[in-house]
Amino acid sequence: MASLGSYLHRHPRLRLAGLLSAPLLWLVVAYLGALAVLLVSAFWTVNGFTGEVVRQFSLGNFRTLLAEEVYRNVALRSVGVAAAVTVICVVVAVPMAFFMAKVAPAGSRHWLVIAILTPLWASYLVKAYAWRILLANDGPMDTLFGGPGYGLPATVLVLAYLWLPYMILPVYAGLERLPDSLLEASADLGARAGRTFRSVVLPTLVPSVLAGSIFTFSLSLGDYITVQIVGGKTQLIGNLVYANIGAANNLPFAAAIACVPVLIMVIYLLAVRRSGALEEL
């Protein structure tokens, strides 16, 4: 035991290999491997008669995806929903986080964070279900506001509800690190609140908002459960993928559709990484 320990101590590369082998075997071989297989199978096709996968390279799936208007519309709608959810979350989260970090008395900040945090632990499905009750015909929302009922607006609303804390928390964390003295210095130098916000608060806000947007955007882009619960007949990318695996039994085409959100997210992550927002997570 002791000799092994000292041997390892003298050979840091060996220690590193020991630490990394199992996790990398899992994440690179199993997970990235699975993603790679998925990507490859997107170029395969399914024999229309036997329903068996034909393992021959073909761009047919992607051609269908680009050519047919249905798919283009669903893809655009999904990106639109994800973007709308992100924008709503930013608009609601920034003033809330600002209040929590800079306006609320120091003693109550802790409790406000807990108040935002607690619903995160409540089940995703339970929250979507709560909105199903709220939005039902003759339900509370219908009685009070006369709508919106199930459909696309309901989907955006519920997704924004679900992912709001994921935006508030990083923005709050970012604002909390911004020293109050900077804000005072800005005021002392004659800046009004609006100018201080633009020149001092906003630069610290951007990486935090980007960090939060990874969650709000990606989680909305892949969602197909909430859509089924409150979306009425609305279809998003996730529903198409799901339908092609299940009912249509066309895994290659499902894989081809799934490439769309992956591509969008990879571009998004790489862009965000340049801004240093990944450090904020």
Partner: peptide, 21 residues
């Protein structure tokens, strides 16, 4: 980035990737 990937990618992608693998 690699560790973050399974949660950053849409769940349905991770789902079908693992399923087919």
């Amino acid at each position: 980035l690699l560790v973050l990937l399974p949660i950053a990618l849409p769940g349905i992608v991770t789902g079908i990737a693992l399923d087919s693998a």
